[in-house]
Design a protein around this nucleic acid. Sequence first.
DNA 1: CATAACTCATACAGGTGTGTTCAGGTTAGA
DNA 2: TCTAACCTGAACACACCTGTATGAGTTATG
Lengths: 202, 202
Amino acid sequence: MGSKSTAKRADALRSIDAIVQAAAECLGRNPEASLSEIARAAGVGRVTLYAHFASRAEVVDAAMSRAIDRGNEALDAVDLTGDPLVALARYIEVGWHLVDQARALLAAAQRELPAGRIRELHSGPAARVEGIIARGRAEQVFRTDLPIAWLVNVLHSVMHSAADEIRAGRLTSGRAADHITATVLAAFTPPGKPVPEPGAGE
Amino acid sequence: MGSKSTAKRADALRSIDAIVQAAAECLGRNPEASLSEIARAAGVGRVTLYAHFASRAEVVDAAMSRAIDRGNEALDAVDLTGDPLVALARYIEVGWHLVDQARALLAAAQRELPAGRIRELHSGPAARVEGIIARGRAEQVFRTDLPIAWLVNVLHSVMHSAADEIRAGRLTSGRAADHITATVLAAFTPPGKPVPEPGAGE
DNA sequence: CATAACTCATACAGGTGTGTTCAGGTTAGA
DNA sequence: TCTAACCTGAACACACCTGTATGAGTTATG
């Protein structure tokens, strides 16, 4: 679109990349990390950072976008077709890890970015889950008495919950996926139908 | 313990109360509200605030404690004995509202107070839920293949999720309790057993 | 009513963060 | 090679928060 004016020089692109990467790391550790801190971690001067990003919000947005892109790439490698129960289990296996890693980064984004932007960034992963749920509903293995948006939110909410539990030392990361899957699968089961046994997914 | 030195004067107690109340309101709107803002809202000079609270953390702690106390009082009026399914539904009916109101206040507490203190403050409500779940397990209506601590967390996680959905305009507060109950009841159902129909609780 | 407790406005000290400016050194790229 | 883009540290302006000190006024309470 607007790339006509002047192509960025190679070293500029390298700086920008280093900044975004450092931002993802710093904000991932501490959502309140300052721009000075991020610039230092990126190995560039603070002024250089301001040469490429007009405000703190822009840096956070770029870091968050990067994390989402990485997540989408990881999910591209997962087969989410076929049995909705299996697809959901596979999504959780990969997705909870991503949620766990981007935890603090999300916290930063929620403080710095408007709510609409956050949802926009999540539209990619959200669409996948919606697809799985819709298919599960059509096959009558997932409940239809609650809105899809709600079910999507429940899934992500439980994944976040697992991340908190791990940090509190009450859950080991090895069992996280199992717990999430067992919980969500039951939560998604239509009223009157039996909850799927855990043995089926293994 | 140390109340021997000098009994506080009536106006001092009034000021303290006004500050705690204002803190709950301000932090409820914005977790980053400054002490100046809180003092102003309380109708008190900033210096007066410092005369009663040594640090920001103390103010947040007091506000959070107050909110928890209110919550415990509200829960005291609820009959949580008898059928675990009914008890859980009743807990959600009241508890969801409390979570929704104290949402931002909790965010402030999580930033200002050590994690141990937060859990300590929540021990009251947590014990109630644990009681209900333990009873449900004994009666074989709740699953035993996941730790109680995890189930407690799932419940609160879903309640928080509902609060977020309402703020995003995707859920009306009237239906929140129903959605939460339907979701959590299914999530708590033992594998192999049918999930309870929504008609049963009404 | 008299005194100790309380409140208040003002002001100061110290800290942190954001965003901008400037002048001089470095590097990519034609 | 030569120029424009880039990077840099230092410094500045501004805003905001925390916490403390002071001195004078107000009020509860014995």
